[in-house]
Computed example of a mutant assay.
Amino acid sequence: MRLVSHPVLCNYYVTYRCNASCSFCDIWEKPSPYITVENLKENLRDLKALGVKVIDFTGGEPLLHRQLDLLLREAKAHGMITTVTSNGLLYPKYAERLRGLIDMLHFSLDSPDQEEHDKSRGVKCFDKVMESIEIASSFGERPDIIFTVFEDNIGKIRQLWEDICLPHNLVLILNPVFEYNNVGSNLSKESLAELQWWAKQKNVYLNEAFIQLRLDGGNRVDNPVCKAASTTIVISPENKLVLPCYHLGLRDFPIDGKLFDLYHSDEVQKLVALEGRLPACESCAINCYMQPSFAVEMNKYWWKALPSTIKYNRMKGTWKQMVRF
Rank of each mutant, 00 (worst) to 15 (best):
F210Q: 11
I211S: 01
I211K: 01
I211V: 15
I211R: 00
L213T: 00
R214H: 09
R214S: 05
R214L: 06
L215C: 05
D216L: 14
G218V: 02
R220L: 15
V221E: 05
N223H: 13
N223L: 09
P224Q: 01
V225Q: 00
C226R: 05
K227W: 10
A228M: 07
A228H: 03
S230V: 09
S230F: 04
S230W: 02
T231V: 11
T231L: 06
T231W: 08
T232A: 03
T232I: 07
T232S: 11
T232C: 09
I233V: 15
P237T: 03
P237M: 04
P237H: 05
E238R: 12
N239D: 14
N239S: 09
K240E: 15
K240C: 13
L241H: 03
L241E: 00
V242I: 13
V242K: 08
L243F: 08
L243S: 08
L243A: 13
P244F: 07
C245L: 06
C245E: 07
C245H: 10
H247L: 15
G249K: 12
L250A: 04
R251M: 10
R251S: 09
R251Y: 13
D252R: 05
D252K: 07
P254E: 04
I255L: 08
G257F: 10
L259V: 10
L259Y: 08
L259P: 11
L259I: 09
L262R: 04
L262H: 08
Y263N: 01
H264A: 02
S265G: 11
S265W: 01
D266P: 14
D266L: 12
E267H: 12
E267Y: 11
V268H: 02
Q269L: 05
Q269R: 13
K270I: 13
K270N: 14
L271F: 09
L271R: 02
V272C: 06
V272S: 03
A273M: 15
E275Q: 15
E275R: 13
R277H: 14
P279Q: 11
C281F: 15
C281T: 14
E282L: 10
E282N: 11
C284L: 11
C284Y: 14
A285K: 09
I286S: 04
I286G: 02
C288Q: 05
P292W: 00
P292S: 02
F294T: 00
F294S: 00
V296W: 01
V296H: 02
E297L: 03
E297F: 03
E297R: 06
M298P: 04
M298I: 12
K300V: 02
K300M: 06
K300D: 04
Y301M: 04
W302F: 15
W303P: 10
W303Y: 15
W303I: 14
K304Q: 06
K304C: 08
A305V: 02
L306V: 08
L306Q: 12
L306N: 06
L306Y: 14
L306C: 09
P307Q: 01
P307W: 02
P307R: 01
P307H: 03
T309N: 12
I310L: 12
I310N: 03
K311V: 08
Y312T: 01
Y312S: 05
